[in-house]
Design a binder for these strands. Structure first.
Ligand code: FES
Ligand code: FES
Lengths: 144, 144
DNA sequence: TTAAAATAAGACAAATTTATCCGAATTAAA
DNA sequence: TTTAATTCGGATAAATTTGTCTTATTTTAA
């Protein structure tokens, strides 16, 4: 469904949010350990998220990755997916035609669109705050 | 969403079904031209579909790929996806954890499961006959 | 029986994704 | 101002997916 990069990106963002609630910055090393991902690759993905203004980075000693507390509830899963995998999962044709086109639909179009729209709606209506709080409560997990 | 191989496989299967209604066997060359895909790669995918008993092949002169007429309505999109991409799209964790586990869910689990189940339901309730007939009516298209 | 037409199979190549490594740039504290 | 702790950026490598090619095998018709 999502690329590995995107999966790591979402998991990392949730962990960063969790720590930002407590004003803690986290390093790629700490993140990778917590979400069970390759450190260097994870660092690359974090850089991409910074470029797309999903998370913030602070260089130098005592630096790390963080998200401004007030923004955590405004960051949607779709923002992360968009930043890493682009919008093809929302807009692309399910059968791989160059573009999904209502006026020249593929055989799957009518039925696929419904699922695709529901996926988009799910990603757009889920924010980092909700996800991070579930972890905090111990209801959900980022690895294993 | 699906791999290229899977997209080609679905499009090819629909085209084969369309022709099998008229007792015509089709070659990889003809299929690739009709669904706008690389011939040799498409041939590889057809072989996989034959191995998984989704389509039939007849070797030698006057041979080609076909589907028994009576089976066309019984072949579901999910059969093709299963054969080529496996079942991770139906069963896998949306965040990439080793397995989706109700008892140890990832933060996306509750919401993701709904979309994933709807996707599976859509693929399992759509058969080749329906898809091929839409094409025949000129309502849908396999390329461009 | 032979020739032609077709799929099967495997080796190879290219492109993309995933992953690693290292040096440069930045920052805060000592 | 120096040093240590960081992220940033680019080069490289490994793995997977996508795509090509060539030869073998099978089948029908002449
Ligand atoms: S044209 Fe294929 S999903 Fe819309
Ligand atoms: S555990 Fe992640 S989707 Fe079920």
């Amino acid at each position: 469904m999502f690329s590995k990069a995107c999966e790591y990106g979402i998991r990392a963002s949730i962990f960063i949010a969790l720590n930002s609630f407590q004003d803690r910055r986290v390093s790629p090393k700490e993140i990778a350990a917590e979400i069970d991902s390759p450190v260097a690759f994870t660092a690359k993905i974090l850089q991409a998220l910074v470029r797309h203004n999903v998370i913030n980075s602070v260089k130098g000693a005592y630096g790390g990755f963080e998200i401004e507390k007030e923004r955590i509830k405004d960051i949607k899963l779709s923002d992360i997916v968009d930043a890493i995998d682009g919008d093809s999962i929302y807009k692309g044709c399910g059968l791989g035609l160059q573009a999904c086109d209502e006026h020249h639909p593929c055989p799957m179009h009518d039925k696929f669109k419904i699922v695709r729209d529901e996926l988009r709606n799910m990603l757009e209506s889920t924010n980092l705050e909700t996800l991070a709080l579930d972890i905090k409560e111990g209801d959900t997990f980022l690895k294993r």
